[in-house]
Nucleic acid binder design. Structure first.
Length: 885
RNA sequence: GGGCGCAUAGCUCAGUUGGUUAGAGCACUAGCCUUACAAGCUAGGGGUCCUAAGUUCGAAUCUUAGUGCGCCCACCA
């Protein structure tokens, strides 16, 4: 006993078993294996990322499924890797350059990219090491990276394939222009801030009749030189008569049409809005809808350009705004000024408002690609867990917009497009072209932009396995089994992988998509850096151990949805681990150094042992069912119940009787059953809690019914068909358990000291009294009974408490402890409860429609139940009368 | 504003095609240092299954409306 600590110390074992697994090579999947394949692709974290709780949950779920399938004999490949994360990495590197007193533009593109590579080598991929602490059994030999030569080659290939099929085109779009940095920035670098501004109302006179006109309302009067329409709601009575006519833009004296569009809100402002398609995202959309001209009125630095009239030219946009208002006042066109608080997009970098700017971008045509992806979901070939996400997925795909794949960054895959200075045409190809494919000129310039990071990660099911080459890896590991990811990226990533899967291979990249829960704090707020409400997984792994963290995460998290988590929750996992450890200590103590135990012999095994064995097989069955449906938290709960409630609370307690005695065959059999079931529990627990289960499993004596490979992670997962079952005996023991619970309850009610032994009398049929006779030693030990009498003719003794169950009435004489008043009120409440049930059942059975229409089994069940409850009721009444009288 | 979803014990949630007395974990209460574990054992209290109407022999479960909440997308000139 002394060789075991009273608590499990994870620090002693985690490193040890991790190394054992690594040395065993069991993480690695063979491409030429004869076993069935099971592949999961890790959602590649940003190479800049640090492990957070969301990763913790997401990867624990993946590891559980992988370990479960591996133990079931599958050739499991869990592909790890990272994403080059264009924006995030570039921002990190720029930050460090800033601290060195230099900048991206100063270094130039080539040197900057060099810096990015250096940064990645030094700081990147830390999350990969952190995943190992969690116990993630990834195929580490296959670790992939979206900027590696292999994956970059795949990106190039898919670009060229799509281009050659006419699915990539160049189009115009508004980008977020930073007038200080004179560069476009990504959406992620734009922060929206509330500012106090004004809403100005001013008049645009009607063409040919300056007396008439419309009053528009705007927050950005300086863009008026780029106006190409004025829009009103089609049903707005105030303006209906003007639709189709022209108004004059003041100062530039340009005629623009009044158009009708649903987008306009009659009740906002004046109900009339100026449209500047080149300087506002909504106006841009409307410009496209109505085929309006796009007029850019600004220079790259945000000053007004030559299109604007003389006094405004070269003024900064905010100076121009002031002057516009001044001039409008002078011209008596300004009607009124309202203060207006509204959101303005700011550049996160330079802290100035961004200016939407028209520019050429590359797009992927999505409509055709989406078709098979839609079909896959509709036909249920592609399934979502929980299924409610299917609608979201379909809604997006059915209204899909073309995908803008160019990003104004340097870090990433530079767009493989070359512009010819001579003929103006573009060239592309798998190799960098040395001459224009149209005019053979060598005056080529590559597009400055890079591809969206998702344009490389949508190939994740393919490129890490060697695509476009038809490698053995690709043949074996594509498609994967299930994708475990966060619902936020259903469009960005999930749907796109499906589309490219069909485009390249004509197949789904995965059949199941599981969305894990979002982790929140106890107030239901998402974990976020800015709130600082997150839990650091590494900290809790240090404190409680990886097994505790894994167990707690999945037990708290239902499929989908949200999980409210606090650091104290991990104590629950820790308690469970400790319980397992102590069961192990107890068992090892009783085994007394034995290296092996006897084979199970059903002829000798006692009733509680058979029940426990049966519980194991039942749990193995339901856990498989839950895992199959990705209901991890339910599966883990079943494991908890088996371990704690069944094995420890009942199994070990009942076994003490045999274990305390001399070394008989009975004792050997009880030990055999305990070892067998405990090993079964370790195997069931291995996917969830790999470290403690491995430590224990390695030390358990060999049981003839379990094989013993080099590691639990490659041992056979318990299969319900192979496990012993004792349906009848299990049912019998459950009846005994029920009786024991009632005796304990009665004792507590009478406040009988736990150490005092009592007698018990049970009125029941012969079958049940025989059963009780066989179980007397356990009833005695577990219920504190020193004399048991059971049978049909048992009379009610004096001064006793009574309890009823299915087919039996229990009398426990409690003598001095009996409090008549209390017992009377308890019995009255009990009688009332049973009466209510009886009444309900009678009502049901007296209803001719019920008897006529309900299924036969339901009617029979109700009849039998009524009989049972009536029996209980009469026993209770009898006792109540005797106590009252 | 558009789309989707949720509402069951104090909290987090199960409840499988409508059918036993609606369950679990945590929390709470009481009694126990019973030699594996006080990070424990035993027992217990606690629910008009959001509201209203409907379908049905029968509704937590199905339908409709209302209320409250959440998520995603788009955001107001």
């Amino acid at each position: 006993m002394t060789q075991f600590d009273t608590t499990y110390d994870h620090k002693k074992y985690e490193k040890k078993w991790w190394n054992h697994w690594k040395e065993g090579g069991w993480f690695h999947a063979q491409a030429d294996s004869k076993k069935p394949t099971y592949t999961i692709l890790i959602p590649p974290p940003n190479v800049t990322a640090r492990l957070h709780m969301g990763h913790g949950l997401n990867n624990t779920i993946q590891d559980i499924l992988i370990r479960w399938k591996r133990m079931q004999g599958f050739n499991c490949c869990w592909l790890p890797g990272t994403d080059h994360a264009g924006i995030a990495t570039q921002m990190m590197v720029e930050k460090s350059l800033e601290s060195e007193g230099t900048s991206r533009t100063e270094l130039g593109r080539k040197k900057f990219l060099q810096k990015c590579v250096e940064w990645k080598d030094e700081n990147g991929g830390m999350i990969i090491e952190q995943l190992k602490r969690l116990g993630a059994s990834c195929d580490w030999d296959r670790e992939a990276y979206t900027m590696s030569p292999q994956l970059s080659k795949a990106v190039r290939q898919i670009f060229v394939d799509l281009y050659s099929k006419g699915l990539i085109y160049r189009g115009e779009r508004l980008v977020n222009w930073d007038p200080v940095l004179k560069t476009a920035i990504s959406d992620d670098e734009v922060v929206s801030e509330e500012v106090n501004g004004n809403l100005w109302y001013y008049r645009y006179p009607l063409e040919g009749d300056a007396e008439q006109g419309v009053v528009i309302a705007t927050t950005r009067p300086e863009t008026m030189f780029g106006d190409t329409a004025v829009a009103v709601h089609p049903e707005d009575e105030r303006y209906k008569h003007l639709i189709g006519k022209n108004v004059i833009v003041p100062f530039v004296n340009r005629a623009i049409p009044v158009i009708a569009d649903d987008y306009v809100k009659s009740e906002y402002g004046s109900g009339c809005v100026k449209i500047t398609p080149a300087h506002d995202p909504n106006d841009f959309e409307m410009g496209k809808r109505h085929d309006l001209p796009f007029i850019n009125v600004m220079n790259l630095d945000g000053s007004m350009n030559e299109i604007c009239p003389e006094p405004f030219q070269n003024l900064d946009r905010f100076e121009a705004r002031k002057l516009v208002i001044k001039k409008l006042k002078e011209s008596k066109l300004l009607e009124k000024t309202e203060s207006n608080r509204h959101a303005v997009p700011f550049s996160d970098r330079s802290k100035v408002p961004i200016e939407p700017r028209l520019s050429k971008q590359w797009y992927v045509k999505m409509a055709e690609l989406a078709k098979p992806a839609i079909e896959a979901a509709k036909s249920k070939e592609l399934k979502f867990y929980p299924p409610s996400w299917e609608k979201t997925y379909l809604h997006w795909l059915e209204n899909i917009q073309d995908w803008c794949i160019s990003r104004q960054l340097w870090w990433g895959h530079q767009i493989p497009i070359w512009y010819c200075d001579d003929c103006g045409e573009v060239s592309t190809g798998l190799e960098d072209p040395s001459e224009c494919s149209h005019c053979q000129s060598s005056n080529l310039k590559q597009d400055e932009d890079v591809l969206d990071t998702w344009f490389s990660s949508w190939l994740w099911p393919l490129s890490p396995f060697g695509w476009p080459e038809e490698t053995q890896d690709l043949k074996t590991f594509f498609p994967s089994a299930v994708l475990i990811t966060a619902p936020e990226i259903i469009y960005l990533w999930v749907a796109r992988m499906v589309m490219v899967g069909y485009f390249t291979k004509g197949a789904l990249p995965f059949k199941d998509v599981y969305f894990n829960a979002t982790i929140c704090d106890k107030q239901g707020r998402k974990f976020s850096k800015t709130l600082g409400n997150g839990i650091d997984p590494l900290k809790v792994i240090d404190q409680f151990g990886a097994d505790s963290v894994r167990y707690t995460c999945v037990s708290l998290a239902p499929l989908g949805g949200r999980v409210k988590m606090a650091e104290t929750d991990f104590e629950a996992g820790n308690k469970f681990i400790n319980k397992i450890w102590n069961a192990y200590r107890f068992l090892m103590g009783k085994l007394d150094g034995k290296a092996t135990v006897a084979s199970l012999n059903p002829d000798v095994l006692d009733l509680p042992s058979k029940w426990l064995l049966h519980e194991l097989s039942e749990t193995a069955k339901v856990m498989d069912q839950y895992f199959d449906k990705y209901q991890i938290s339910e599966a883990v709960e079943a494991l908890f119940h088996l371990t704690w409630r069944s094995y420890c609370d009942w199994g070990l307690e009942a076994a003490k009787d045999a274990l305390d005695g001399k070394p008989t065959e009975q004792r050997e059999q009880t030990l055999s059953a305990l070892v067998y079931v405990f090993e079964g529990i370790m195997r069931l627990a291995a996917p969830v809690m790999p470290f403690i289960s491995e430590e224990i499993w390695q030390n358990l004596p060999a049981h003839p019914a379990w094989e013993k490979p080099d590691s639990l992670m490659i041992a056979k997962y318990p299969k319900v068909d192979d496990l012993p079952k004792f349906v009848e005996e299990a049912g019998q023991w459950k009846q005994v358990q029920d009786l024991i619970s009632h005796v304990r309850s009665v004792r507590t009610q009478a406040k009988v000291p736990p150490k005092d032994k009592l007698a018990a009398f049970v009125r029941c049929d012969k079958q049940f009294s025989d059963l009780l006779g066989r179980c007397e030693k356990w009833i005695s030990r577990l219920a504190g009974i020193n004399a048991l009498a059971a049978g049909e003719g048992i009379a009610k003794p004096e001064k006793c408490l009574v309890a009823t169950g299915k087919g039996w009435t229990l009398y426990v004489p409690v003598g001095q402890y009996l409090d008549f008043e209390k017992e009377k009120s308890r019995l009255e409440a009990e009688v009332k409860r049973v009466e209510r049930i009886v009444k309900g059942l009678e009502g049901k059975l007296n209803n001719p429609n019920f008897v006529k229409k309900a299924p036969k089994e339901v009617v029979e069940q109700s009849t039998a139940q009524l009989e049972n409850m009536q029996g209980q009721l009469s026993s209770l009444r009898e006792n109540l009368e005797s106590i009252s009288g």
